[in-house]
């Protein structure tokens, strides 16, 4: 059942731009997790995990507090892997018209 139905077909393209355009694949340097990431600036980061990547990350899998508060922190290994991909130029830094 549909909800929040856009009435303009261009809205679907906007959704694509903001959620998946320019996302670059990054392989964790320490485990099998593979995410996509984007850097609009030095201080900005966007990281999209998949179900498979989440299951492959031993760091996140160890976090099992019932209130989930421990899994609300980033995995330091994935953060380091993304930083490395930025340094090597695989992830360009900069936004394209706000997305």
């Amino acid at each position: 059942m549909a909800s929040f139905v856009p009435t303009d077909p261009d809205t679907l393209e906007e959704q694509r731009l903001y959620t998946s355009a320019r996302m670059v694949e990054v392989q964790c340097l320490d485990c099998l997790a593979k995410v996509t990431a984007k850097k609009n600036s030095d201080h900005h980061t966007s990281i999209q995990w998949s179900t498979g990547a989440r299951a492959a990350c031993p760091e996140l899998c160890r976090r099992t507090r019932p209130d989930g508060r421990d899994s609300h922190q980033a995995c330091p290994r994935m953060t380091a892997s993304i930083d490395a991909a930025v340094r090597s130029g695989e992830i360009p830094v900069g936004a394209d018209d706000g997305y």
Partner: peptide, 17 residues
Amino acid sequence: DLKPEMTDRFEFEVDTT
């Protein structure tokens, strides 16, 4: 009809500088 991207982990840090 749930899609994986609705629930898959997503992290975002806003640049506030």
